[in-house]
Nucleic acid binder design. Structure first.
Lengths: 184, 184
DNA sequence: ACCTGAACACCGTTCAAGT
DNA sequence: ACCTGAACACCGTTCAAGT
């Protein structure tokens, strides 16, 4: 990549990060190009679709999450590992408003630029879930896709300004329902 | 209202119902006017905002729900009444795609045309919840707003085509978490 | 009273023309 | 190679002009 193109790319990405942080995943691409002092077609040249741009914005965080999953799996009890991973996943989808709906549709669309990130996330969760189920710590009637849907549902709560203050409380309640009651 | 205006109003509403059923609450208003063979400004005359149109589309169902809540309250055990009401509420928000997000913001915005419907729905749920809590059937650390957020979260799952098949299953799991375990 | 076309300010997407 | 302005087809919203 030519030096001037690289500079545009980096600058575009930085501006996109702040605009998406403010307006969510549906932010105006025109607005991003404008704020980056770059022609709109230049944005399209670097990021041919909205998904492609968001994929770059989210990739780093997903990779961190995947790496951390490996650590959790080897170093922590299955119960704690699963809950910690759910906590991290909910934090991840709340990086930008609207990520949950984006990921839900990307999961079902193999052509989406985000499809790989979604399946990675799902299979990481499925592994931790399986381990907890094998040890009798998690209910047996759920799978990785259910986990994904539940992360999305909790993330949706966090996306609504009026519900955001309750999201931690509701996380505890909903996630609690996935675990086997140890006092029984 | 003049006879011709009434005819336009009724026709507009019927067309809007089918277009919103197909494209969700964000459906193009232009498209609705076009399909109704009516000038776009005529739609605006009858429904000055998108909220006003959706409010009319949803009102009937909310009223049914409120009426049914009264029945549930007097004729059924608190536990069953609460679960049935949650079931009906989730069905209600799934009448059109995107209703959950619409209601979440309308609940926080007293100027919204849907604000009244939202607070009605919330207080109906709060009443049933209180009764179940008084009888020791529901956990004590939740309130009507939590119930509303949870209905929204489950409704969000139903709005995602890839998760829709799991929504009944996840309803049982999440709602189960709100009830006190009777086997203890 | 009620209806309408046209105007305005946006948006995403594409492409011929520039350097 | 890379960038850009302009064009196209949409959208929501408003308003002067018609009947």
């Amino acid at each position: 990549m030519r030096a001037d193109a690289q500079k545009n790319y980096d600058h575009l990405l930085a501006i996109a990060g702040s605009v998406v942080a403010e307006h969510g995943v549906g932010a105006s691409l025109r607005d991003i190009a404008r704020k980056a002092d770059v022609g709109l077609a230049t944005l399209y040249r670097h990021f041919p679709t909205r998904d492609a741009l968001l994929e770059v914005l989210l990739r780093e965080t997903v990779d961190d999450l995947t790496r951390k999953t490996n650590e959790l799996e080897t170093s922590r009890p299955s119960y704690e590992a699963l809950v910690d991973w759910l906590r991290d996943s909910v934090d991840f989808v709340q990086k930008y408003n609207g990520v949950v709906t984006l990921l839900a549709s990307a999961l079902a669309d193999p052509d989406s630029a985000l499809h790989a990130s979604c399946t990675e996330l799902r299979s990481a969760g499925a592994r931790l879930l399986r381990r907890a189920q094998d040890e009798g710590m998690a209910r047996l009637d759920i799978d990785g896709a259910d986990l994904f849907a539940i992360i999305g549902a909790i993330g949706w709560i966090g996306d609504q300004p009026s519900f955001k203050p309750r999201v931690d409380h509701l996380f505890d309640i909903i996630v609690g329902a996935l675990l086997v009651n140890k006092t029984a």
